[in-house]
């Protein structure tokens, strides 16, 4: 341990509780009631276990309920049937204890606040003193040094997403939920953001669920990939991803990587057929 004394304390966490279950979704159904009594089943009997310190990606065709799984885990929605437990408790408890980090599809930054205040927001909402060193560190981590005083509308789409990821990381959450955080970006920026996220995750090792429709992104980042079917969303298959980290260009160019991409993509294609 003495050799790692200079590292941040949270890096020792995964090793201590590597076997603990962080997220447990049990036979969860989600049925939305639309106008005039019409019902829409978004999820059907979804089972998902995420161990502490694990990075799980959920992929699926659009509208398959991926984001609904994330909303259940965040405590923003309740399952119609089945249960969702986060660290053995109800999901919203993690939020009220300020131990949850979420980066939404829309970045949801406060337009009147600077980059710095947006990242410091979780501290203020938690009633804690803002840890200036940590905020500075996060700004540097997401490559926004020099933009501390800028307001969201002065930033590009990719920069806003990075601010939103930094905000999600601010309180060193026990669970990080990422809902297509790079959905609106061009391919090049997206790859760069993937690399940055992999690096951030490598440093903080926070239990993470990433929702995406990009197979490459899932394979670059995740320990396991959950493939979901079209409406209603079900878990079709779960793939372990064993490529060594960091997964650089050498990994993504390897035949094994391409094979896995093809396999998962064909699973997604089959889903589109089912959904139609």
């Amino acid at each position: 341990m003495s050799s790692t004394a200079t590292l941040t304390p949270m890096e020792t966490k995964p090793a201590e509780h590597a076997t603990r279950t962080a997220v447990s979704v049990n036979r969860a159904d989600k049925i939305f009631t639309l106008s005039r009594g019409k019902k829409l089943q978004a999820l059907a009997e979804v089972d998902l276990e995420v161990r502490e310190g694990e990075f799980v990606a959920i992929i699926g065709p659009s509208g398959c309920g991926k984001s609904t799984v994330l909303r259940l885990a965040a405590g923003l929605d309740r399952p119609t049937n089945g249960t969702v437990e986060i660290f053995g408790a109800a999901p919203h408890e993690l939020a009220t204890q300020h131990r949850l980090g979420v980066a939404f599809q829309e970045h949801a930054l406060l337009p009147w606040a600077s980059v710095r205040s947006n990242i410091a927001l979780p501290y203020k909402v938690a009633g804690r003193k803002v840890d200036d060193a940590r905020v500075d560190g996060l700004i540097e981590l997401v490559g926004l040094k020099g933009f501390e005083k800028a307001r969201p509308k002065q930033l590009s789409g990719g920069m806003r997403q990075r601010v939103s990821i930094a905000r999600a990381l601010a309180l060193s959450p026990d669970l990080l939920l990422l809902d297509e955080p790079f959905g609106a970006l061009d391919a090049v920026t997206r790859r760069r953001m993937n690399a940055e996220l992999a690096r951030i995750w490598g440093e903080e090792k926070i239990t993470t669920i990433l929702v995406t429709h990009d197979v490459d992104e899932a394979l670059i980042l995740a320990d396991r990939v959950v493939v979901m079917t079209g409406r209603p969303g079900r878990v079709r298959t779960i793939k372990n991803v064993d490529f060594p980290r960091p997964r650089d260009a050498a990994t993504t160019r390897s035949p094994e990587f391409h094979e896995l991409v093809d396999e998962l993509t064909s699973l997604l294609d089959a889903n589109d057929g089912d959904a139609a």
Partner: peptide, 15 residues
């Protein structure tokens, strides 16, 4: 989206 954000970061009514 903003309301959801404040829910997940555990904001109480006053904040």
């Amino acid at each position: 989206a903003h309301q959801d954000l404040f829910t997940v970061i555990g904001a109480n009514r006053t904040r």
